[in-house]
Design a protein around this nucleic acid. Sequence first.
DNA 1: TCCAAAACGCAATGTTATAACACAATTGTA
DNA 2: TACAATTGTGTTATAACATTGCGTTTTGGA
Lengths: 168, 168
Amino acid sequence: MQNSKVAESIFSQHDHQHCIDQALAAAKELCRQRKSRLTPVRERVLELIWQSHLPLGAYQLLNQLSQEGFNSAPPTVYRALDFLLDHGLIHRIASLNAFIGCNCPQDQHHGYFLICRDCGSAQEIEAEEISSFLRQNASAAGFKVETETVELSGLCPQCQNRSQQDDQ
Amino acid sequence: MQNSKVAESIFSQHDHQHCIDQALAAAKELCRQRKSRLTPVRERVLELIWQSHLPLGAYQLLNQLSQEGFNSAPPTVYRALDFLLDHGLIHRIASLNAFIGCNCPQDQHHGYFLICRDCGSAQEIEAEEISSFLRQNASAAGFKVETETVELSGLCPQCQNRSQQDDQ
DNA sequence: TCCAAAACGCAATGTTATAACACAATTGTA
DNA sequence: TACAATTGTGTTATAACATTGCGTTTTGGA
């Protein structure tokens, strides 16, 4: 992930159509460069994932696909997800068994997530420092890290405010 | 987790019976203090989990239980696991859908794991610094962390050596 | 001894993910 | 263009993980 780029918080108001457009444009460009085929199912799955910042489960996606006339068997969506994962276009959130769009697929990286237990949205956060910190800790035990799963669950700023108001 | 106590590496040779004995003794003492009932199924599940440092899935445990004459329906093992989780006697590893014993259930804490993709064993590592580091990162985004999932997968020291030898 | 809470038995079902194999579309190459 | 190899998709079945609901039993305290 680029360190120069400070990710905009998804927890505040933002022009989400911009997120979608940017993600799809980046995906197309990436696949063009890599000579990979962003087929209709794959593109549509990516689009569906980007409809919100809520991680979506495979079967939620599958339902939507089938309503749109796509083939509705599990392998269809899992194959599309595998493709998108391989290309770094999405991340899998293990603690939710769900998938979320990645907004910087150009840079190979692990996803680090802040997941709000109230509104359900997941924000990917800056990675470099976390990664090097965790790897230092691991190497102290002689362990060579290959993949990292870091998922922090709690309350996002908006939901903290909301629950304070509810208390009054 | 106690900072004074440096966890012994499970990746090296060690007296595993000692791990088991200590874990069971700690569990009994904890349940006695809390007036919670460590029933036969619960104790046996804990014991089974501690047979190795490999995270075990619910259905692996269930198979073993049924071979020993326990009731073999899923709720049996999941209820036992819930009890053990509630008391901090085990941790759940989300990226594996599996469960592993905790060697310091006295201290409430999140589990941070080094998981070897080759031999499958999982080592819980020191937590305090990681936790505060991650929480700092999160609070920079105004996020209030409640639960943490940190699972690093890769190669343990022994398996690194083995794969080097294999290369020759 | 009686009651309420906790634990357990049991059947069914829900949710997530993969295997295996056949067929179709696409791409590179002669 | 023709052909072979690769890649992608359709389809059926099943594996793997987890929960719901309800009734019975056990347990510990009044």
